[in-house]
């Protein structure tokens, strides 16, 4: 099972080994999709956790217990694909690989890979992406 979360934590938690604890104690694989962590300022991590449902639940509980604000990723990228002209401008900024061009140079959007970074919103010259 895979779940995506945004983790926000206070400055005093920056020094905690969150990632290794999740992996070792809860057997959860962690994929960091986006992050902004600096000492003294606290931090934010967008992560995808993969593991058995029970382990995921336990891991989520532990994070909350130590003071991490855990919010399931609720934002979605909405793509008006019918109007797409397959120019490819959005693929220039899509680091997660959710937007790509296939062999026929048609744009392909794989929502499973999207981390809702929103860079494509400004990259699309036809304004076809919105965040909801």
């Amino acid at each position: 099972m895979k779940k995506r979360f945004t983790l926000r934590f206070a400055p005093n938690l920056v020094n905690q080994p969150l990632v290794s604890k999740l992996v070792r104690s809860y057997d959860v694989e962690i994929n960091i999709l986006n992050g902004d962590v600096s000492s003294g300022k606290g931090g934010m991590l967008v992560v995808e956790l993969e593991g058995k449902p029970d382990n995921l639940k336990e891991a989520e509980k532990w994070l909350k217990d130590i003071g991490v604000v855990v919010s399931p990723m609720s934002k979605d990228l909405i793509f008006d694909s019918e109007k797409c002209i397959d120019c490819g401008a959005c693929t220039a900024v899509c680091n997660s690989g959710a937007l790509s061009l296939d062999r026929d140079w048609k744009l392909v959007y794989d929502s499973d890979k999207c981390v809702v970074c929103a860079l494509c919103v400004h990259a699309c010259p036809l304004k076809l992406f919105t965040i909801a």
Binding site: I85, D86, C87, G88, A89, T91, A92, L101, D104, W105, K106
Partner: peptide, 13 residues
């Protein structure tokens, strides 16, 4: 480094 087109090759074809 990733490369990306600005012009639509699909529609040009």
């Amino acid at each position: 480094v990733r490369t990306a087109p600005m012009a639509s090759l699909n529609r040009a074809r």
